[in-house]
């Protein structure tokens, strides 16, 4: 009985440790991470600096008053969240025309991004940048998140968020890349960048959005079964069965059939 009790105690230890570690990281993150400026609290000075940055870096395509053209979307009313998503993920400014804008190293630091967002938000109301609490995976329920993700996201982004193909060379990017932040995931749902539809708060509530983030964070732990093989499903599994499984066994067969020296 004693041994059993000891083991039970032992069994819970990793969970407790994990929770502590999560709390610690969360706390540290909250302390250290630069808090994104939301449009409401933006100062007029931020808006002015943002406008300068906009005229220098964005106006070529989006126009000096950010109203866009036939091919380029207007930014009036897209809100700070859209700017924060596009600029912090390096998609904007766009470098070349392709089927879609792709993730690159961000060109602006957090402060400049916030200033740009403040400027665009001042042109018309739109979704604001979510607070840290809104995107904190520790507060979300991964099971609800899984259900929401399955119905609304998995068909494009794959069951665990590894990404997938759209038509004509477009694609839904992987959500498991190390540089995809929880805030960007939230903003993407909120603003529907490029091909992605908008999932407004009536469709996926803010709590559900946080649950989705909790689900994705859960996936970052990898696969319970071992190497995830890209989490791409049966095709990659089949490829590995041929390459590793049959490869090793044909190697063994050659050894068995060869005459010993």
């Amino acid at each position: 009985m004693k041994a059993l009790a000891a083991r039970r105690h032992h069994r819970l230890a990793p969970v407790v440790l994990l929770l502590l570690a999560l709390l610690a990281t969360g706390g540290l993150y909250a302390l250290l991470a630069p808090s994104p400026a939301s449009a409401d609290s933006a100062s007029t000075q931020d808006i002015e600096t943002g406008e300068k940055l906009f005229q220098a870096n964005c106006a070529t395509c989006h126009g000096p008053s950010a109203t866009g053209t036939d091919d380029v979307p207007s930014l009036v009313g897209v809100g700070a969240a859209a700017v924060d998503f596009q600029v912090s993920s390096g998609r904007m400014p766009m470098q070349s025309n392709g089927p879609q804008a792709i993730r690159k190293p961000a060109q602006f630091d957090a402060e400049q991004t916030a200033q740009l967002a403040a400027y665009v938000a001042s042109l018309g109301t739109g979704p604001t940048v979510p607070t840290d609490e809104q995107v904190d995976p520790a507060l979300g329920d991964p099971a609800t998140g899984a259900a929401v993700f399955r119905t609304n996201c998995a068909m494009c982004h794959n069951a665990v968020g590894a990404g997938g193909a759209l038509s004509e060379g477009k694609f839904a990017p992987s959500l498991l890349e190390a540089d995809v932040t929880d805030r960007q995931i939230y903003e993407a749902m909120q603003t529907g960048p490029q091909s992605m539809p908008v999932f407004n708060d009536a469709n996926i509530t803010p709590e559900e959005k946080r649950d989705v983030i909790a689900y994705i964070e859960e996936q970052r732990d990898g696969s319970a079964g071992g190497l995830s093989l890209g989490s791409l499903g049966p095709v990659s599994e089949g490829l590995w069965a041929w390459v590793v499984g049959l490869g090793l066994l044909i190697g063994a067969a050659v050894w068995i059939g060869a005459k010993s020296s």
Binding site: A147, V148, T151, N152, G192, P197, V198, F199, N200, A202, N203, E208
Partner: peptide, 21 residues
């Protein structure tokens, strides 16, 4: 209603560009 939660949908909730399952 929204899948899978079952919340009924108001027309005003469906903004342009959004998709509801």
């Amino acid at each position: 209603a929204i899948d899978p939660t079952g919340r009924p949908i108001k027309a005003a909730d469906v903004t342009i560009g959004s998709v509801f399952h």
